[in-house]
Write a protein that binds this DNA or RNA. Structure first.
Ligand SMILES: [Mn+2]
Ligand SMILES: [Mn+2]
Ligand SMILES: [Zn+2]
Ligand SMILES: [Zn+2]
Lengths: 158, 158
DNA sequence: TGATTGTTGATACTTAGTATCAGTTAGAGG
DNA sequence: CCTCTAACTGATACTAAGTATCAACAATCA
């Protein structure tokens, strides 16, 4: 196994979800799953593809996108709208929630609104019926907040 | 002028905004501005490029993207995260607001939350300091709601 | 009018994402 | 175990978004 295989809980959840869909176990899928589970932060497709190629250069780009789509369908991977393009992230939360992304280090956390239904009511006021909504927040995480005074902010991905 | 030139108010606002930045008046810019002002709904870059080419096939794709970026910088054009990729939209509202997009016809309206600050408080609860947030709602507009029962829903862009 | 500087279109490149398709393989059932 | 087939694969190719360069060009101003 090793640390390179990422969160074993996430790994198991993803494999089970694929099982539940009657999908086959293959080596490329296993490899990509491990890389996704090892990703600590939201990632771009090219970052993921790069890391996958590091483990097995034979795995095609298409298979990476295909699995990303399957995982999104299972609700285990989400696509976030970063200010600088789309980002994918492993997210095991099951209840309705939203994401905050630290603009300094890229760390992403989830949160919920106390009154989430307020959004639906707001659009009802103008005659729309809400289907779903996406809320994406950008800010500074607690860790980066602490190190704010020093000349240079700590660097990190994205 | 003609109907093809789009909302003259929007056109004037955009030209003034570019003026304010010390930017030059050129024919390509004028043409693209007119097309943007004539767009009734959110549009993809390729839709815009197509319409621009219809008026003047010599105008390059790069100039279209360049102007889109300038207009976004002025706050007159926004990029929305559609479920099917990014969309640009002319939006003259100045106060903080959000967008609802009709999943049937593509029509987009703006709205505000009664308690917008609730978002900031929600992320503060987990230690983050909010910088800004993006809320995108998808639903059904009043017009499309009425025509819901008939066998086929009315078609429309995106 | 002429110089300066912003702007333009062509070209090329990167990344996201989808579509095809012929070859391969997981794994069910015998 | 073997066989068969549907699922899966990587290669290839394509479209679209977006950015970077750069030489030619033109809006503005002295
Ligand atoms: Mn999530
Ligand atoms: Mn707007
Ligand atoms: Zn941070
Ligand atoms: Zn509608």
């Amino acid at each position: 196994m090793g640390p390179r295989s990422g969160d074993p809980v996430a790994l198991r959840l993803m494999e089970r979800a694929l099982d539940a869909q009657g999908l086959r176990h293959t080596l490329p899928r296993r490899t990509i799953l491990e890389v996704v589970a090892a990703m600590g932060h939201p990632f771009t497709p090219s970052e993921l593809t790069e890391q996958v190629a590091q483990r097995d250069p034979h795995i095609g780009r298409a298979s990476v996108f295909r699995l990303l789509q399957l995982l999104r369908g299972c609700g285990l991977v989400e696509r976030l709208h970063g200010p600088d393009g789309e980002l994918y992230t492993l997210c095991l939360a099951t209840e309705h929630h939203h994401h905050v992304t630290c603009t300094v280090c890229g760390r992403t956390a989830t949160f919920s609104l106390e009154d989430d239904a307020a959004v639906g009511r707001a659009v009802e006021r103008i005659g729309y019926r809400m289907d779903h909504h996406v809320l994406q927040v950008f800010g500074v995480c607690p860790a980066c907040r602490d190190q704010e005074q020093p000349s240079l902010p700590p660097e990190g991905p994205r």
